[in-house]
């Protein structure tokens, strides 16, 4: 996904001189190609995230389209007040590209995990939040970001995520994508749990249960209509995300269910409300926190 990000940015920057790339000293082996080709529109501001976001806002206020690239905690939380005032309040066309959504940085530890970013960013007026689940979603969202009106936070994974969608899929900011359809249950996911979710659906199918799979590449604005259509069908709903169960995808879905007045069985599957003190890879930590196929099938089996 990191390479998808930089590929899209380079392709666009070749004919769109509004594109700037700003990094607070992050991007080894990823951003060099952009820096080499567009030295005047690439800026390493040093390890200074607040300044990175402020400079980006200044560029955007001057008609440019700056992309700020760093790890999720440092491009959202370290500079949160700059994001609030300089980006969200002034509605500047700044794109905050965060790498390492969820537990991507596994053994690096909790400072580098991103488990509460969606909740925090969702609270900001004017902010669009994208969490692509595969390179196809990432490419489509990046391409739309170039002409988007207002700021975007895009939560990227790392490299090497498998493609889940076919080449003809239509992905738009603000819309969900239906990948499978069935009446037994609806599984809704966002970002880097898309691949896990598709394995869950396959396993259910193998056991004779037909489920709907919805990918939510945009968390804000949220595709409420698709949730309402599921509620009208009366099927149980399960959400899956690599984020705490507070304030993320699960909460967004719960808010719609609660206000719609047609109750269905509902479960949020995500990370618990705690920081990891366990050492291990993303996969190891997913297993530790029950974010794996077996545990999800167990939960779903009980619905």
């Amino acid at each position: 996904m990191r390479n998808t990000f930089v590929d899209c940015l380079i392709k666009r920057a070749r004919y769109d001189d509004r594109i700037f790339l700003i990094t607070p000293d992050v991007g080894f082996s990823v951003l060099e190609r952009f820096a080499d080709e567009f030295p005047d529109r690439y800026l390493n501001v040093g390890i200074a995230e607040q300044n990175a976001v402020g400079v980006a806002a200044g560029l955007a206020l001057s008609g440019k389209r700056p992309y700020v690239y760093s790890m999720v905690p440092f491009v959202t939380m370290r500079c949160f007040e700059q994001v609030r005032v300089d980006v969200a309040y002034m509605k500047t066309n700044v794109v905050l590209a965060g790498i390492g959504g969820g537990l991507t940085y596994g053994p690096a530890g909790a400072t580098h995990h991103a488990i509460e970013d969606i909740a925090i960013m969702r609270a900001l007026p004017n902010m669009t939040i994208c969490a692509p689940g595969d390179p196809i979603e990432a490419r489509a969202l990046m391409e739309q970001s170039f002409d988007h009106d207002g700021p975007i936070y895009i939560r990227l994974g790392r490299n090497g995520e498998p493609a889940i969608h076919g080449p003809d899929v239509k992905i738009e900011i603000g819309s969900s994508v239906k990948i499978a359809d069935g009446d037994d249950l609806a599984l809704i996911t966002t970002g880097n749990t898309l691949e896990l979710a598709s394995r869950v659906i396959q396993a259910m199918q193998d056991r004779g249960r037909k489920a709907t799979l919805i990918s939510m590449p945009t968390i804000k604005p949220f595709d409420c209509d698709v949730i309402i259509s599921l509620l009208d069908r009366g099927m149980p709903i399960v959400t899956l995300e690599e984020h705490t169960v507070i304030g993320g995808l699960g909460s967004a879905v719960a808010e719609i269910i609660a206000e719609y007045g047609k109750g269905v069985k509902f479960r949020r599957i995500g990370l618990p409300d705690e920081y990891s003190h366990t050492v291990g890879s993303q996969e190891y930590l997913r297993n530790h926190f029950g974010l794996n196929l077996e545990r999800i099938l167990e939960i779903i089996g009980g619905i």
Binding site: G54, V55, G58, L59, L61, S62, E81, Q82, V85
Partner: peptide, 24 residues
């Protein structure tokens, strides 16, 4: 009024972005 402000420590960074845009 070119820039919204009120929280301290924001304006100089924004000014740098504007200066870079103008220089470029």
């Amino acid at each position: 009024v070119e820039v919204s402000s009120g929280s301290l420590g924001h304006g100089l960074s924004i000014g740098i972005g504007m200066a870079i845009a103008r220089r470029t």
